[in-house]
Design a protein around this nucleic acid. Structure first.
Ligand SMILES: [Mn+2]
Ligand SMILES: [Mn+2]
Ligand SMILES: [Zn+2]
Ligand SMILES: [Zn+2]
Lengths: 143, 143
DNA sequence: ATCTTTCTGAAAATCGTTTTCAATATCTTC
DNA sequence: GAAGATATTGAAAACGATTTTCAGAAAGAT
């Protein structure tokens, strides 16, 4: 559990405290590979821990993002989503507009061409987002 | 003025009315090539037409999007922006995180590679977004 | 001109997110 | 293991962008 240590180091370095809620939220967040909205993770946690508060879940997700173990995403449904980040890996997304399925991909050629475009405009890229929206394999076929 | 006719056809086809506000908003929207938030366009309009309402501006922008003469964009600053769409042209964006400058580009190779990625996942693309965030030419150089 | 329907603008409502605040938990220091 | 200092929690309120409501005004049909 490398990310747990990473988060604890982040907390102590910032003078923040290690609480049972933070441990619980991190554990649950790491359990699944999904792209959670605050609401979704809150509802999942509340099943087993009815005392947990929405604000705590949200604040903790923001902390994950701040320390780099989570990334904030926005797929245009009006909710910010958080996903677990592995080391310095990067990926982009295919998003099914019908069932919500999210597929991750990385294409090195596209990444290169992005850099080329940026340099042609004298632009220094800090980050980017590429999302392909459409119908997934299952939602394409009627039946 | 092709887009004016397009909008009027859209209105009459839907049983909607052609009002002085709608004419004015469309005219002002088309005048500039910028990526307007509702707020921005509202403030611009209000200078010459203090009686216009925010809700009317917003509703009208949504109508533009619905009839295809505008597209909704979201560059992560929490505001929906509307830009004029020319025919079926498509483009992506470079966004300066410091000054807000928006540069448009289209790279045919990237578009091709996106299709390839999609087909590899048996995915049917409906639309996509590619945004490169960073520093523009001016904001890069200190001075 | 009259009637019917849609539109407008101000204000209120909504939705996701963030902040506030009093009670509680954690961490230090003795 | 207390006691004190500081950060955290959860509920509720505040927030900011967007959307809806509603009564009066305007547009279009007859
Ligand atoms: Mn992902
Ligand atoms: Mn554009
Ligand atoms: Zn699907
Ligand atoms: Zn700039």
């Amino acid at each position: 559990m490398d990310r747990v240590k990473l988060f604890n180091d982040f907390l102590s370095q910032k003078g923040l405290k290690s609480t049972s809620q933070r441990k619980l939220i991190l554990e649950t967040f790491l359990e699944s590979a999904s792209h959670y909205s605050t609401e979704e993770l809150y509802l999942k946690l509340r099943k087993e821990h009815p005392r947990i508060g929405y604000a705590t879940v949200h604040r903790t997700l923001k902390l994950f993002a701040e320390c780099g173990i989570a990334a904030e995403r926005n797929f245009g449904d009006g909710q910010t989503r958080f996903e677990s980040v592995h080391a310095d890996e990067h990926h982009d997304h295919l998003v099914c507009t019908k069932c919500g399925l999210i597929i991750e991909f990385e294409d090195q050629k596209i990444e290169e061409l992005q850099k080329l475009v940026a340099s042609q405009h004298n632009f220094k890229i800090e980050n980017h987002r590429l999302e392909l929206y459409g119908l997934c394999k299952h939602c394409r076929s009627p039946k």
